[in-house]
Design a protein around this nucleic acid. Structure first.
Lengths: 193, 193
DNA sequence: CGGTCTCTTGACGGAGTTCAAAGCTAGTGG
DNA sequence: CCACTAGCTTTGAACTCCGTCAAGAGACCG
């Protein structure tokens, strides 16, 4: 029932007898319809979110009212707002379901208890953080050193099915460019080949 | 002798009797002269680096030969290349001392041993990763949503003494703009006020 | 002093944004 | 089965910010 989570954890650490039962006690399953929000700006996000099925986007709205998509979260990924989760402060992010989705949630209190009780979970979390930090650093580097066309090509290489699941204007926002620019990038790529 | 490290760790976790002695066994101190490198692109960086004194910069050189500074590391900060450290692959970064500096280093092997033996260190490392990830996400958001002037103002607010220690062209690189743009931003700020 | 490194200033060009309009697509209801 | 609407995408034209190139001015150091 929470198979995907177990499978993901097993990619990082070894599980012992009983670990899976232990985990089951800590997570709650939630259904979210397309277009609905897990949370919005101003909420205190005192829980973590694991995507079981479907798809989510995390974005902020800046002072000019422009949306900036920070993350797409596919099944097997974590999403939410780490900053709000660890500090207790309110979030500036929105997390919206782009498809009918299922998510596992775990409260901050349960989370801390789990880290305390289950060394394997601590280890899993640490490795996840390490990889997450490296990935974010790489994205930052890409933002500074790469032009629009290369960013787009890199994205569809990394997530080949994203074009089938996400409208282009959201992809543009994720890549830090306007919809019009992405449109022109794409038309140039098709005519050139 | 490794006081700064202990002090920093204490900001995150409680230390017990004997913890400090334990730590002392794992770290080596290194002197680096201004202009010298801790490592360069192509090296396998199988150690972590804690800045004891001085100042370092981490940068990459892209295909066009342009430098992009990813981090300035002040005393009390960690630097290096987390990606290379955890994966064992070679790095694409350069880490150069901008002043005569001292750094504590710890090999990957010692690091793993320390995480294994010292729960407080595991906890410290985890909290550091969490904060590092949040900080990098915020920088990414800033890169996408903020213009040159605001980025500069935010930087000098966050690190007031950076102007005394780092040449402007490096600050420009860190902020993802050309030296000329930074120069114009600064002259505009002084004439406007 | 002369040379190297750093910073500034001006002119020009280019990548990407903004604004506006029109085309496309899919879902809805008659 | 078609008409209508709403959301998404494309296209064009003008503009803007920033990068590039080039020249010169300080500043620091042997």
């Amino acid at each position: 029932m929470n198979d995907l989570l177990f499978q993901k954890i097993k990619e990082y650490v070894k599980l012992q007898e009983g670990d899976i039962e232990l985990l089951n006690n800590y997570f709650q399953c939630k259904q979210i319809l397309k277009g609905d929000f897990l949370f919005k700006e101003g909420d205190a996000v005192n829980y973590a979110i694991f995507v079981k099925s479907g798809l989510f986007r995390t974005y902020v709205v800046d002072e000019q009212g422009t949306e900036h998509i920070m993350q797409f979260a596919f099944p097997g990924w974590w999403t939410g707002d780490l900053g709000s989760f660890i500090s207790g402060e309110t979030t500036k992010f929105f997390v919206e379901a782009l498809e009918n989705s299922e998510a596992l949630t775990i409260s901050k209190k349960s989370w801390d208890e789990l880290l305390d009780k289950a060394p394997f979970y601590l280890d899993y979390h640490r490795k996840l953080l390490e990889r997450g930090l490296v990935a974010t650093q790489n994205r930052l580097l890409e933002a500074y050193s790469t032009d629009a066309t290369k960013k787009y090509l890199h994205l569809i290489e990394s997530f080949p099915d994203i074009l089938q699941r996400v409208p282009l204007y959201m992809i543009a926002s994720y890549l830090g460019m306007s919809r019009e620019t992405l449109s022109r990038v794409r038309s140039q790529l098709t005519t050139e080949k």
